[in-house]
Simulated scan of single mutants.
Amino acid sequence: MHAPDFWSQSDPGILSRLLWPTSLIWSGVSALRHRYISPVRMDIPVYCIGNVTLGGAGKTPVSLDLAQRLIKQGAQPHFLSRGYGGSASGPLRVDPAHHSAAQVGDEPLLLARIAPTWIGADRVASARMAQKAGATHLIMDDGFQNPGLHKTASLLVVDGAVGFGNGCVFPAGPLREPVASALARTNAVLILGDQAAPHLKRDLSGFPGPILSVHVVADRPDALPIGAKCIAFAGIGRPEKFFATLRGLDLDLLLTQEFPDHHDFSSQDIEALEKQAQTLGGTLVTTEKDAVRLPAAFRSQVVSVPITLDWPPSVDPLSLLTQGRAHAV
């Protein structure tokens, strides 16, 4: 889904105001779910990495980073994901050797490279299967708005360049729920990127917990030296963010092409990209998330750019998961 322009405007405008009654219904349903559904407590820690906006904010890189840190400490974390965009209903364990993105979603395939990953709308069922399979910790790559499973700690990820948009709940704006209600369930806020959206500082001013700026760092592949001529394409929440990252690597972008988030690349899409590469003489470049959705034969012709997180030097990221939730006074 392409976000309408008025979602990102500081002044909500007339369209947002017209949609406001529907937003009240959306918010009310969400509030009722959290009020009346009793979350199931697991015998092992459950960490939720979530966001409050529709579209990508950077949850998956954070989930991968924290899982790798836990593994280095000898833990056996498992991921839980809904499997958005996949046809499989779950709960089931993702097998990267046999499952495709069309079956289990693109993000679960990325997660499964690091640790066992379970998909399914029923997070409790997935959690129980993961614990039975030996998980010592559970990391929810989504599910912040899902009240079925008790979270030991929740980190709220915010795209610094976008923030909370116009501050309105869907469909009047990009929010899944009011910011205040999300922050009440949050242990720490992670602002990803080097930019700060207007009003973001104000929107977070009442939050008593840690607010950290985390930089996203692209790891240059050997196939992309400085000045390499590239044809970049991406089907993520904000493709322009990926293209800016490539320019930051001093790559020569001959052409950029945007696709919808979680786009299922068709044979026509692939044929067009191949033709562009041949005509312009550039290397096809995309994100790791997009790469897992490509057919294997075409994927071998494309360079994917991995990203890592650069945390503040004074911060132990895992400590954010073990400290209690702060309360406003």
Rank of each mutant, 00 (worst) to 15 (best):
D264K: 07
T245H: 09
M1D: 12
F298S: 03
L190M: 06
I139M: 02
V292N: 05
A97Y: 05
L18W: 15
A3C: 09
L190W: 08
G55C: 09
L251R: 04
T117L: 13
A101P: 06
D5L: 14
L249F: 13
L255A: 09
A184R: 15
K229W: 00
T287V: 08
L309H: 02
A232E: 08
R128F: 03
P295S: 06
H262N: 04
I231N: 04
S27A: 15
I14D: 04
I44P: 08
S126Q: 09
H327K: 14
L294I: 02
G56W: 07
E274W: 04
F207Q: 00
A97D: 14
L320K: 05
G165F: 11
T279I: 13
N51E: 03
I211C: 03
L138E: 04
S63K: 07
W26Q: 10
P108A: 13
H263D: 02
A125C: 07
R202W: 00
V216E: 02
L254Y: 01
A182D: 05
S81R: 14
L249R: 12
S10L: 12
G324A: 15
L280E: 08
L15W: 09
P174C: 13
L109G: 10
V285A: 10
R17G: 06
I270A: 02
D11E: 14
R238T: 15
C230D: 04
P61W: 08
I231M: 05
G13W: 07
V302G: 01
A244K: 12
A172N: 13
W26H: 15
G86D: 14
L15Y: 04
L254P: 01
D106C: 07
F265A: 02
A102N: 14
L249V: 10
G163K: 10
V292L: 09
D219A: 05
V189A: 06
A97M: 10
S89N: 03
V305I: 02
K72N: 12
P198Q: 08
D264F: 04
G90D: 05
V62T: 11
